[in-house]
Write a protein that binds this DNA or RNA. Structure first.
Lengths: 228, 228
DNA sequence: ACCTGAACACCGTTCAAGT
DNA sequence: ACCTGAACACCGTTCAAGT
């Protein structure tokens, strides 16, 4: 399986800029949309989404907090850019000989999950901010095209991808979700759980293997789809 | 199909209270945990999650903003309580003659979706705040028990429920997700979309029916599960 | 073109006080 | 027991100004 990294990393940032102040012609911008976004991702990885405030973020960049607003309209746009950066990291599948639609969808979302688990704090953002940028749409378009190439109709392909994406994001949300606050009744000891919630306890007796469980659900989704 | 409303609504709030000030013995609290939570849900339904600030919320309740803190430790706890209230509204399935594990899981999450679509602004909350309160755990426990009754092992039941829940929440998130801000490249006309993203456009040509698509995915998940 | 700094209109929460 | 009010330590963003 080969993966293609899409997105801008590495591009941009070169080339001589025209500077308005002609007396100091080679002063360069301290900032850059790309470093802003990458730094934001790093901060979120470290401190969580709530840990990224525009003021602290400015300090992190070594710049006045308001400088960021020259490149992005507001905090929401920064979050959207971070989501897009994470999706760029997932990249794109290269179709190989013998690929089936099942193998393509399977690999796509297995990889999506693995990448998102490396950025767990971005998962609520990814689940919550559907970004419809040209790069995102183009990637979706090529995935659909690949699935059509191996035999699906475009409508079915879209259907399956939408469902598999929903499942993956939903699964990641609960997987990465730190149980919010200590709510009513937290701190129940394991032994107590067994008598209070016997069926739940019985179901968890074998332990919980998130990789396996995720795979079973994704497999079931593909096997059950009335497509092939 | 019969549904049981679980949760506290209707209980509480009666009974004579003991008042510390014995000279004015029948003064009653202006507030109540239950009215706080119900009001919060109503405000979120109307104004969205960001529209609920503790200060405006106090005004809505006709009370000093800080009064709420007597009943709940912080805003996060308020959100958790709202999530629980929504789950109470979903209620619980009564097992009928001839039920199969497929029919039970199907009905449970179809109903979950219908209820959450009546409170679309709470969906990010539900997806993002896994509440593990006794009521939630008890409901999960009884669902597992019901599935065991119709033939599943507890482990398989838990597995399937976890996957179906992930799928449902993930699906609702994109369904209710207002595309964040006008990101790069928004405002592309339909005709342009067709040439820029031909496969995507072909897939959407028949139109998009969220009910049908959700049902297909859930059905596939159930049909594909190696359980029966 | 790119960045700064002050200012505006908010936040959630602590804490001492009132009744 | 239940609620108030002032105060603290923050926010995101606008806008005029600097270079």
């Amino acid at each position: 399986m080969k993966w293609l990294r899409t997105g801008p990393s590495g591009a941009g940032l070169a080339g001589g800029r025209v500077c308005f102040d002609e007396l100091v012609p080679d002063r360069r911008p301290a900032l850059d949309r790309d470093v802003i976004v990458r730094t934001a991702l790093a901060v979120i990885d470290r401190d969580g989404v709530a840990g990224l405030t525009m003021r602290k973020f400015g300090a992190e960049l070594g710049v006045d907090p308001m400088a960021v607003y020259y490149y992005l309209p507001d905090k929401g746009a920064l979050f959207d850019a971070v989501v897009e950066a994470v999706h760029d990291e997932v990249g794109e599948l290269l179709v190989e000989e013998g690929a089936t639609w099942q193998s393509l969808v399977w690999e796509t979302f297995q990889r999506t999950r693995r990448v998102l688990l490396r950025h767990p704090h971005t998962i609520p953002l990814v689940g919550t901010r559907p970004v419809l940028s040209p790069r995102m749409l183009a990637r979706a378009d090529r995935l659909i095209a690949a699935l059509v190439e191996v035999g699906l109709t475009a409508a079915t392909a879209l259907n399956i991808v939408a469902c598999a994406r929903s499942y993956t994001v939903g699964y990641l949300l609960v997987e990465a979700g730190v149980p919010a606050g200590p709510p009513v009744g937290a701190g129940v000891a394991d032994a107590d759980v067994m008598v209070a919630y016997p069926s739940l306890a019985a179901g968890m007796a074998q332990g919980y293997d998130p990789d396996r469980q995720f795979g079973m659900g994704l497999r079931a989704l593909l096997d059950g789809f009335p497509a092939g």
